[in-house]
Design a protein around this nucleic acid. Structure first.
Lengths: 356, 356
DNA sequence: CTGAAAGCGCTTACAG
DNA sequence: CTGAAAGCGCTTACAG
């Protein structure tokens, strides 16, 4: 049994802090259920019950056991617990693959996800597949090795096979981004981009703008969704839609917007599918010595740090990522427990700054 | 034994994908060491040996066992393995606490860390303490519950107690950022900011600038380190140092830089402690209709996405975060195995863009 | 309400 | 080189 009493033991798992003097650190084990049980004079599973089903334990017993737990600073080993209960309280999330894919919105989302998980006593473990093609097989592997209980996906797109494949395998999964091919399915949270963009057009209209252009380039469903908001809003006001498309980069946007500004009927306002494009648009305007916010209005999408870097800072449509993260974690916890996860469409919010 | 043969089993852990027809999914367990052992006609630990110490197994046996492993698609359960071997192959990393703390450099570092870990068959689990004061106790808890083997810290500062405390507890830990109070200690990787900044001053000098200002505001050791590079470089060239200090925000930097530009001896070049400050500087210059890169030079630090958002984009001093991450993960893996982790000081690189 | 037993899946000494 | 045993720390039915 050789069990060392570990009162006021430091958090050591295999070795302990040397005392003030420089004695060599001795490996020592933290207390286990058995340590607690022995000391409290109860059986091992009464300790487990105190922790996991306190209502089953007589108050007096519970209190006695709890006192020992506190005294020993006992914390149940996560591995032992997970192995037996088959629940790790850990979810996997894939971060972007390369710097090219860098996405400030998703970085913010990741932090929100992490906080939401922590608040619910769960962890997020990062997944980094070598290439996009490896993603599903890595999920497969992580799930079957018992490393996680499920996954949070982001950046879904039409034709995205990930949700369907994982669900087909019985793996709990939710996504930031709707299930484009099965919008009625559960388990996703997304932002109503069309409404957000329509609001931006509305804003420019109310400020007297009549040449409001769309600057798009975000591929996939989200881009289309946002663009549809532009179309419906311009239709509402009888405006002729001017849709500018370009690759999704600051440079491409600067060139495309510049081209429009140099044309015969230059737009007085740009509604952009992302902040990246909006920054490009701002660069084109600056290069032409236009007064951003005066001569030309610009509104971006995502409200990332990028929107604060231009002069003046850019108005942008903000996605409530914190709320998204909370809903998603709740849904995923539910899914692991067997409850079909709900879906939700959230409204974005136009943040006004100098550019509009 | 009721063990279901699981050839061509999908990655299910508790339930399996229904066949094409809509049969209700039946819970099924993936194969274990025992499944493999039974089928290969060997004992359980020969299977384990094939996986963990193949040199101990006769080639013929090894091959036979391996064939069964492949056939069954067997993957050892991480939990069982970790519980027994006391190694989780997982490291904890704290992401920033709030949006105010948002730091694009560290977001990039996190991704590099994640990739470096994955390449070495390890995972990164995110830690999100409610407040900064909870950080150490959460590390404590994660370590002793067997959730991780160690931690990667970032953003160390003089007086930072985290490294010392964790090491005192016997917890393996490394940091992105030197151990300011014990620079000779191992386990950190940092960037030589002083040299990077000196290079920036050098660059401006060679371009004919003689009024080169320092714009600082990053608190802590890194800010001091960088500033010392400014001081030594200006001393080398007999320039009068002009040190502007402000809070670490775009607005504060814009105001401070603007004040200098409006003064009697406006700087013709700004060397900035971070991209955030450089962006503020660019804003001040733009507001005064100065030609950035012509009338006034600006160099930032960190080479974050922010540097690309201004017009023109900003030259910036890039930290080799990918290399940092690799060194750190290697050092931490070593530390877990008992090897004292080395430290390293890496050189940054000046990335030239339109602003200088 | 409490306890003795079985077992989650794995690896680590130790015999043979 | 291979195997029987013990055990990592925990929880889940099941008796009492």
């Amino acid at each position: 049994m050789e069990r060392v009493p570990t009162i006021d033991t430091p958090p050591s798992r295999t070795r302990r802090a040397a005392r003030p003097t420089q004695e060599p650190a001795r490996p020592v084990r933290p207390p286990t259920v058995d340590t607690v049980a022995e000391r409290a004079g109860v059986s091992r599973q009464t300790v487990s019950n105190v922790l996991n089903a306190p209502e089953r334990v007589l108050p007096a017993t519970r209190q006695r056991v709890q006192a020992v737990i506190d005294e020993l600073g006992y914390r149940p080993n996560r591995l032992g617990s997970a192995l037996q209960s088959r629940v790790t309280r850990t979810f996997g999330y894939r971060c972007h693959l390369s710097e090219d894919e860098e996405n400030l919105l998703l970085d913010r989302f990741l932090h929100d996800l992490c906080r939401a998980a922590a608040a619910r006593n769960h962890y997020i473990v990062l997944v980094s597949p070598p290439t996009a093609d490896d993603e599903l097989s890595i999920y497969h592997d992580m799930y079957r090795t018992g490393s996680v209980d499920g996954f949070v996906l982001s950046g879904t797109f039409p034709g995205d096979a990930r949700l369907g494949t994982l669900r087909g395998w019985g793996v709990p999964v939710v996504s930031f981004g709707r299930d484009w091919d099965h919008p009625d399915a559960g388990g996703w949270v997304d932002i109503d981009g069309a409404t957000g963009i329509a609001e931006a057009v509305e804003h420019f209209w109310s400020r007297g703008h009549r040449a409001i252009a769309w600057l798009g380039g975000a591929s996939g469903g989200a881009g289309e969704d946002r663009r549809s908001g532009y179309r419906s809003a311009t239709r509402t006001h009888g405006l002729a839609p001017v849709e500018i498309e370009c690759a999704h980069s600051i440079e491409a946007a600067a060139e495309a917007a510049g081209h429009a500004l140099d044309g015969p009927q230059p737009p007085t306002a740009f509604v952009c599918a992302t902040d990246v494009l909006a920054v490009g648009c701002a660069r084109a305007a600056a290069a032409r010595h236009l007064d951003i916010g005066g001569d030309v209005g610009i509104i971006g999408f995502d409200d990332t740090r990028l929107a604060l870097a231009t002069s003046p800072p850019l108005s942008s449509i903000r996605q409530p990522t914190e709320h998204v993260a909370e809903l998603l974690i709740d849904a995923l916890i539910g899914a692991v427990a067997g409850t079909p996860p709900p879906s939700a469409m959230l409204a974005p919010r136009l943040v006004h700054r100098g550019s509009s």
